[in-house]
Amino acid sequence: MAEALTLLPPAAAAFGTVKLSNVSKTFRVSGKSVHALDSVSLSIDPGEFLSIIGPSGCGKSTILRFLAGLDRPDEGEILVDGKAIGGPGLQRGIVFQDHRLLPWLNVERNIGLALHALPGSPDEKAARVSELIALVGLRGFEKALPHQLSGGMSQRAAIARGLAPRPPLLLLDEPLGALDSLTRARLQEELLDIWRGERITVVMVTHDVEEAVFLSDRIVVMEPRPGRVRSILSIGSERPRRRSAPDFVAARREIDELLNHRT
C-alpha cells in the first residue's frame, strides 16, 4: 500500500472515491447483540468534504473505522477508488478524537512516524515534516513532548501526522470534539484551508451541527438503533461561510430537527 504513496503532492485530485453498499454490522456487547449499522449505502466523491452526524450509537464512528480498515463490516462492501479495503494503511489518513500522539516522542518524531513506511531519504522526510509543522502552525514546538502541548496543539500535530503521507482520503473522528469553542472555531478554519490546499477527500464524524454546516459539502444525518442514514443534505453556499448567514442558520435548524424529532 505504502509504495503507491510519495512525498510529493499528487498531480490531481482524482483519487479518494468511496463507495459503501449495504454495509451492516452487529456487535456483541456483554452477551447482547447490538445492531450498530443496518444496510448503509453511501458514495463519496473525490475532493468532497463529507460529514457524518448523529446521536451516539448511530454507528457514525463505526463507518469511519471501516474506512480506516480498523474494523470490517459483517455484510456489504466498501470500495475506495474501486478497491476493497484490506486493512489499515497510509492511503487513508485518520485523526482520532484523542489525538493519540505517542507521549514518548516529540512533535517532530510523532509526525515523522507517518513517513516511516514511505520511500524517500531522511532529508526529504525531514523537509516534509517541517513543511507540515509550518502548515499546522506548530513552528517552535518541534521538540515539545505531547504532555507539554495544549489540547488544540496536540490535535494540530495529530492532523499533521494524518496528512503526512498525503493520503487521498483523510478520516476525521470528532477531531475537534475535545476542544474549547474558541480553539475549535479557529481549527475549523485551518481545516478548511488544509482541505482546499491539499485537494483531498475528507470524511469527518462529528456531533457538532454548526461544525458540520461550516465545513461540509454534504452532511449525512444518521439515526440510531439500528444505525441508518436518515437523510443526506447538500450545503451549497460559498465558503468561507458566515455562521450568522440566513442559509447557514436554516441548514442548522433543518439538521437539528432531523436529529431531534424522530418519527
Binding site: A68, L102, L113
Partner: peptide
Amino acid sequence: AWREVGTVLELSRLKQLKVIILPAAL
C-alpha cells in the same frame, strides 16, 4: 489506541515493537 496508530501508519512489526510497544511497556 496506541497499537492502532502502529497499524494505521503501516509500521513493520519490528518498528512497532521499538517505537510503540517497548516505550509503552517501559
